[in-house]
Amino acid sequence: MAMLEVKNLNVYYGGFQALSDITLSVERDQIVSILGSNGAGKSTLLKTISGLLKPSTGSIHFNGEKIDPLGPHDIVKLGLALVPEGRKIFSTLTVLENLLIGSYSPGARRTKDEQLENVFELFPRLAERKGQLGSTLSGGEQQMLAIGRALMSQPRLIIFDEISLGLSPVMVKHLYHAVNRIKQKGMVVVLVEQDVKRSLKTADFAYILQEGKIRLKGNPKDFTEEEVKKAYFGL
C-alpha cells in the first residue's frame, strides 16, 4: 500500500481550475520529486494535501486513511509534515520555541526531548542559536529551522516545498545532504522543486506538472532531457 495516494484530484480557485485530474502515489522508502515551473500547480497541490484547501472532487489517502476532509492540524497528527515554501518560521519566537511548537500535537509532545536531540544532531547550528529570535537567523539557518520544526512533529512523510529557494549552492548541498539523512531514518520524502537537476538526481520517482496536469512521471533515470524539457516548459 502506498504511503500517500492522490486520486483524480480537481481543485478550483473560483472558476479557475488549478489542478485537473491529478493522480499520484508515494511509496514507502522513497524520495519522490514533484516538479513544475511557476504556476504549474505545485503549491496548490501541497495546500490541498496538507488540508489548507479542499478539493472539489477526488480523494487523498495517507497511510490508508482518507485525509481530504480533515483539517490541517489533524493531518499533522497523522504524521504528514510540510516544510513550507519561504520557510514561514515564526520570527518573534526563539529557535527553541519554533522547534517546540512543531511538537504541538499530543502524540509528538511525549517524545519531544528525544526529537529535539535528533534535530540538534542533524543541525548543530540550531543548538548554538537556541535562544535567538527566528528573525535573526540567516536564510539557510531559517531553512534548517523549518526542517527541524517539521521533524519535531515526528512525521512519517515530510514534504519540502522549494527547499533551495534563494539559498547559496553550498547551503543547498548541505540541505540535500540532510534530506538524504532524513530518508535514511525511515521517513518518506517528497520534494517539490523548481531546481530540476538536483531534485531529479536525488529522487527515486518524479512527477512533472504543467498547467495543473501531470505531463511526465516515472523513474528520473529513464527520462531523456528532451522529455523533461517538453514536460516542464511545454515546448
Binding site: L52, G71, P84, T92, A108, R149
Partner: peptide, 12 residues
C-alpha cells in the same frame, strides 16, 4: 506571529 503557518504545523 503567523496564524496560517501555525495552523499548517498542527495548532488548532
Amino acid at each position: 506571529d503567523d496564524d496560517r503557518a501555525s495552523e499548517a504545523i498542527g495548532v488548532n
